[in-house]
């Protein structure tokens, strides 16, 4: 495995909403290597986005990180003062592509203003005392637009966001997020609102730019099929916990956790026409009403007594493949006891 860039260990995050306390992330640990693409998948409400936001330090005020470490290039981001975070990390070394390209751009400023703004601020942090003005970065901004494949960037840069289509807005955002200085890109549902041909273009763009700049990517999505095409490793999350993690081929080709297996079976692409799809009964429980033991047990077809009592730990079930389940599906016995 390549040198680690990001090491998250035991990250635990609570949302305090008055009387309700929700555990959004529960002891999340993983390592992301340099230049790797890691996919984070799960149903809505499983904590995928909270994970992204805690890494870049943009959590809402009701969030409280209980314990854990987020070590990025040897620095614990959680201990870093806010000013340092702004200066060194956020928007510089770590950037994020948000959920919704329609809302991530300010409608009352031109693309030029918004792009040069970022470049200008980055420059101020990198070279204190720099007297460069926003206008001096126009050339660079146009270069970035060009690298994301926008036709006629010289003219388009003075347009407003409404003059761009969804796919083009997403390209602008990627252009803002990816630069030579970025070493970690957090892509949160970057292609959800886009059409398939545009989605394929954007995903190709992210992986190509990542390969070119040696950027690592944390790719958050609910679309397992996309991950199968672009990610090196996959992490499956459920109700704030990591359920399964490993190389893409081994997680999707040979899933160990019943939840991952069930998710794959509910995709229509794998079933012939007319055959019923498998669906997981019930719903993801609200985070303040998690069941005892394994949070998946009420929906799991293999649930046993032990699942109702204890939380299964994440165990390395085969080489670099972890799964958090008492049941070893294939051998029909407890991995827990075996190890």
């Amino acid at each position: 495995m390549s040198e680690p860039l990001l090491e998250v260990s035991n990250l635990t995050l609570d949302y305090n909403l008055g009387s309700r306390k929700m555990r959004a992330l529960d002891r999340i640990s993983f390592t992301l290597g340099k230049g790797q693409v890691m996919g984070v998948a799960g149903e809505s409400g499983c904590g995928k986005s909270s994970l992204g936001l805690s890494i870049i330090g943009l959590l809402p005020t009701v969030a409280e990180i209980k314990r854990g470490e987020i070590v990025f290039n040897g620095i614990d981001l959680l201990k870093l003062p806010e000013a340092e975070m702004d200066k060194e990390i956020r928007g510089q070394k770590i950037t994020m592509i948000f959920h919704n390209p329609q809302n991530a751009l300010n409608p009352v400023f031109t693309i030029e203003t918004q792009m040069t703004d970022i470049l200008c601020v980055q420059d101020k942090y990198r070279n204190p005392g720099s007297r460069k003005r926003r206008q001096d970065f126009k050339r660079q901004a146009i270069e970035r637009l060009k690298s994301t494949g926008i036709a006629d960037p010289d003219a388009r840069i003075s347009n407003y966001p409404f003059e761009f289509s969804g796919g083009m807005k997403q390209r602008v955002i990627i252009g803002m997020a990816l630069s030579s200085g970025t070493s970690l890109l957090l892509a949160d549902e970057a292609t959800t609102a886009l059409d398939v041909t545009i989605e394929a273009q954007i995903n190709r763009l992210i992986t190509e730019l990542a390969a070119e700049y040696g950027t690592s990517v944390l790719y958050i999505t609910h679309n397992l099929a996309v991950l199968s095409e672009i990610s090196d490793r996959i992490m499956i999350m459920y109700a704030g916990r990591v359920f399964e993690m490993g190389w893409t081929e081994s997680v999707l080709g040979d899933p160990w956790h019943p939840y991952s297996a069930a998710l794959l079976e509910s995709l229509p692409g794998r079933q012939p026409r007319g055959k019923r799809l498998h669906s997981i009964p019930g719903y993801v429980p609200p985070l303040d009403q998690l069941p005892r033991g394994c949070s998946f047990h009420p929906r799991c077809r293999f649930a046993e007594d032990i699942c109702r009592r204890q939380v299964p730990p994440l165990i390395e079930v085969s080489s670099e493949h972890w799964s958090a389940c008492f049941l070893d599906q294939k051998r029909g016995r407890d991995t827990w006891q075996r190890i």
């Binding site: 796919g167 041909t197 394929a200 273009q201 397992l224 199968s228 081929e249 080709g253 995709l267 794998r270």
Partner: peptide, 22 residues
């Protein structure tokens, strides 16, 4: 259009014709 649809397959990553523009 059809090959652009991502598919869960652990075997190979396909090379598709990407359409230009929108």
């Amino acid at each position: 259009l059809i090959p652009a649809v991502p598919r869960v397959s652990s075997k190979q990553r396909k090379q598709t014709i990407l359409l230009k523009g929108e």
